[in-house]
Simulated assay, not measured.
Amino acid sequence: MQPIYLALLFIAIIAIGEVISIKSRARIPTLLVVVATVFVLLQTGILPEEYIAASTFVAVGGVLVPVLIVHLGTMIPLKTMFKQYQAVLITLIGLAFSVIGVIVIVTLLFDYATAVAGAGPITGGIIAYIVTADGLREAGLTAIIAIPITVFTIQNFFGMPLTSIFLARYAKKIRADETAADAAQGLAPDSTEKEKSYVLPKEWMQSHFVIIFLLFAGGALAVFLGQFTGINASLWALAIGVAAAALRFLPERSMEKANSSGITMIALIFVVINSLIGVTWDQIVASLLPVMVIMIVGIAGLMLGAIIGAKLFKWDTNKSIPVVLTALYGFPGDYLIVEEISRSEGRTEAERQRIMDELMAPMLIGGFTSVTVGSVAIASILISTL
């Protein structure tokens, strides 16, 4: 089948998910619909696994991941980044409660190896899953490799709806803040942006191609630094984006300025879809009982930690819980859900922008803290104890 036909098929699924998200006011996230639909199609044989790679979007999405993270860095002003230390600490508290709960309770009900198999993936994404699965193979525990696979596959189905519920509640509170609404309407961000000067000539920064080149240059630099230092490239990409915007090498919201955000997000969704390859019904059924215990205990620990963190830092729990729950899906799910919530809950463009500005930074920081850093460290430490 021609790649254009395959791309059309998957984009149709994404569009259907978007329509469902709009109709449900983001209670059912687009990414959840896409993941569930593609998983069912793969398991029933309607959709051959090779079709995903044949669409060519997976390769494009893989290239664009560091580029988009650089863009996300330009979306968060440096002053905002300094203020997000609370999001980092609250997320770490949630991770600690989740891991301790899983290790203690799952070990008592099953065994320690089963607890380790689930503790890493429940606090993060694909990297934590890979570390855990490889460690189990090296330890000769191949019989329970289905546990991290299943946890990694189904945690989205729990994390994203819960996040949408709490974020929607918090968005309504932002929307009801009339003082903030009046202030936001008087900011005139476009004119403020125009008054700022760039390092490169202003005429160059009006070119979409120059901005895209700079984003790719930042992404390439992040990958190089990741390989050279051993620090995850995503962290470098985020730091490069923040620094480039602060130093005026890039405009704020760079990809939007280059009119390139839509097709980029589609390509990234293909990366998520590709992670479903290799997961079977039999694996899920065989590990269902321990996985469900791990999910319940792990998510309860995340939420308990978020509530305690909210008390310590005087946050609204409707904000702290979603920030910690980013551990269940990470990037780009955190970005997509905030975008959906701002679109569905904001009645005006000013309200939508205020919701985005309030939620995007802590959600992204929470996701990077858990999925990119915390979960990898947790999985690596726990696997070494087997």
Rank of each mutant, 00 (worst) to 15 (best):
S21L: 09
T30Q: 13
L31A: 13
V40C: 11
Q43Y: 03
G45V: 07
E50N: 15
Y51R: 10
F57M: 15
V63H: 11
V65L: 15
M81V: 15
Q84V: 06
V88I: 15
L89K: 12
G101M: 07
I105D: 02
V116H: 06
I122R: 06
G124L: 07
V131F: 04
L141H: 12
L141D: 00
T142E: 13
A146G: 15
I149M: 14
T150N: 04
Q155E: 11
A183C: 01
A183I: 10
A184R: 10
L187R: 14
Y198R: 04
V199P: 01
F209T: 14
V210L: 11
I212A: 09
F216T: 08
A220T: 10
F228M: 11
M255K: 00
M255A: 08
K257L: 00
A258C: 01
T264L: 07
A267D: 05
I277D: 02
A286F: 04
I294L: 05
F313T: 10
S320T: 03
S320C: 05
V324G: 08
A327F: 06
A327Q: 07
F331I: 14
L336G: 01
E349A: 14
E351S: 02
E358D: 11
A361E: 06
G367I: 05
S375W: 08
A377R: 00
S380K: 12
T385Y: 03
L386G: 04
